[in-house]
Write a protein that binds this DNA or RNA. Structure first.
Length: 513
RNA sequence: GGUCCGUUCGUCUAGGGGUUAGGACUUCAGAUUUUCAUUCUGGCAACAGGGGUUCGAUUCCCCUACGGACUACCA
């Protein structure tokens, strides 16, 4: 009987979730959906010193924004609650003690100074990897070296202690990674990891094994930075007697900085010229503000599509995938092995694709919202028309206002380039006729306006190309934009006349020849 | 330093013992257009290097180089 697939995303609430974390969550989610399983959020807050207020809410909001739904979480609860490790604190000690009793772990009383001293000593002796291990533990203060009664005395008197895993001296530890195949590590490369800290909290290593087991997690999909400690986790499953239900592992390739120089990290903030966080974040201690994809104008569908392709591909030519389609096509086998450089250009391209696929009416809401902020009234019909004219030329929702303000506000400045090249006496004469004859137009629409302009030009033996740029300048101040006749139709009769008059007055000094 | 992981166009990648090594982003050129953008067409551009194995290797194996991760009472 196959077990139901259960995966977890297990972030630590030490700040905003960064984009690599979002991708890990996404892959977990896609895998769960593909397999008809459950997606669980577990908060790994065993380090009380690094707790950051608001981080957990941020994580949940970010996942929510992406459309990643949680079957079990600290908020929704679930059959394996609680989902915060701090709230599971009483559960861990018994397993650590079980390991002590079975001889796979021991008490250690060394102070931080003594540990430093040990490392310094080994370093001075040119030991390649100074670590608390099968050899050095014999020289340290622990329940393997101290007399039994002293250990007992120390424990009873409340001396601070940790519990360390007793890693065997020589043993080949193998684990099968779904992405990388068999990975072999010699136990001598693993040190006697602390399982229980002196504050009574477990470390990540113990907590994640205990929780994954208790929560019946079947697949652990996490970043490659965990690969070196994965063999240690295998050892823990073995010593705890849980090896037969041990989850399968998949270690995801890392997200690298655009120059390939190191992994993308929270600390990169906005230094790279693009956000590394899904949502904007204000650091509660320093007040430092970091930008987010949501606020930058990325559509969640585009963001998710882009993220999914950073390290995974469907093996077909299709690039645009909804979250549902991704879940349908997703497979761990198609995840790449090598680190992926982050390319913001591609993210932008995805955003444009999704923007263009939206109906004009929906795009109009972006414009309407911006107009409201600027206290400009506009009918939904007009906004929809403008959205339709602009959609092929914007990358972000905010561009509708930024690039199309001239639909509502008369230009105050004119492109110097176009003015000097295209604004001349001949054009001005055409515009004089044009604005004088506009009032007679029965229907003020793009076709009629164009017809009128064509008539005037014909009378003067001119071609449309000779005046269009200048007319665009008069109407919008800009050198480029959507169909000018459409713009004029939207601006309206009076405003068009007024803008032409203003331009003739203001640009007079260019019309000398 | 040690351990582990990785390496196909600038970037994301497909492919896989015999292919004109395919696509997308970027970029360039042309077409369309009243401009710019879009769109369309086309171009530039890659198997890190060296050894094997093989009739044949980019593909399999080894070594080197390079890159990355890890190396805490952090996750």
């Amino acid at each position: 009987m196959e077990r139901e697939v259960r995966v977890r995303f297990a972030p630590s609430p030490t700040g905003p979730l960064h984009i690599g974390g979002v991708r890990t969550a996404l892959y977990n989610y896609l895998f769960a959906k593909k397999m008809g399983g459950k997606m669980i959020l577990r908060i790994e807050d065993t380090d009380q010193n690094r707790f950051v207020p608001g981080a957990e809410d941020y994580i949940i909001e970010a996942l929510n924004w992406c459309g990643i739904t949680l079957d079990e979480s600290p908020v929704t609860g679930g059959p394996y609650a609680p989902y915060r490790q701090s709230e599971r604190k009483p559960m861990y000690m018994q397993y650590a003690l079980q390991l002590v009793e079975s001889g796979h772990a021991y008490y250690a009383f060394d102070t931080a100074e003594e540990l430093d001293e040990m490392r310094e000593r080994l370093k001075a002796a040119k030991v390649a990897t100074p670590q608390y291990n099968a050899i050095t533990r014999a020289t340290m203060k622990n329940s393997l070296t101290l007399p039994e009664d002293e250990v007992k005395r120390r424990l009873e008197s409340g001396d601070p202690y940790v519990i360390r895993l007793k890693v065997p001296r020589k043993e080949e530890v193998r684990l099968k990674d779904m992405i990388r195949g068999w990975v072999m590590v010699h136990s001598s490369a693993i040190d006697d990891k602390v399982l229980m800290k002196s504050d009574g909290m477990p470390t990540y290593h113990l907590a994640n094994i205990v929780d994954d087991h208790l929560m019946e997690i079947t697949h652990v999909i996490r970043g490659e930075e965990w690969l070196p400690s994965a063999p240690l986790h295998v050892l823990l499953y073995r010593y705890l007697g849980w090896e037969d239900t041990m989850p399968e592992f998949a270690h995801l390739p890392l997200l690298l900085k655009p120059d390939g120089n190191g992994k993308l990290s929270k600390r990169d903030g906005d230094k790279l010229g693009f956000p590394v966080f899904p949502l904007r974040w204000t650091d509660p201690f320093s007040g430092e503000l970091s930008s987010g994809y949501r606020e930058a104008g990325y559509l969640p569908e585009a963001f998710v599509n882009f993220l999914a392709f950073l390290g995974w591909n469907p093996g077909t030519q299709q690039e645009i995938f909804s979250l549902q389609e991704l879940a349908q096509e997703f497979s761990v086998e198609r995840i790449g092995k090598s680190g992926t450089r982050f390319d913001i250009q591609k993210a932008r391209w995805f955003n444009e694709q999704y923007l263009r696929a939206k109906p004009d009416a929906e795009l109009a809401t972006y414009l309407l919202a911006a107009l409201e902020e600027h206290q400009i009234t506009c009918t939904p019909e007009k906004a929809e028309k403008i959205a339709g004219l602009m959609k092929e030329r914007v990358s972000f929702p905010q561009d509708f206002w930024q690039e199309a303000a001239y639909f509502f506000v008369a230009p105050t400045e004119y492109s110097e380039k176009v003015a000097s090249k295209k604004w001349n006496v001949q054009a001005v004469e055409v515009f004089q006729d044009f604005k004088n004859e506009i009032p007679a137009l029965a229907d003020f629409n793009a076709d009629a306006v164009k017809e009128l302009l064509l008539q005037i030009l014909e009378r003067r033996g001119m071609k449309i190309g000779q005046v269009m740029q200048a007319l665009r300048l008069a109407a919008t101040g800009a050198e480029a934009g959507p169909d000018l006749m459409q713009i004029i139709e939207v601006i309206g009769k009076e405003e068009t006349i007024s803008r032409i008059e203003t331009a003739i007055a203001k640009l007079g000094h260019y019309a000398t020849a």
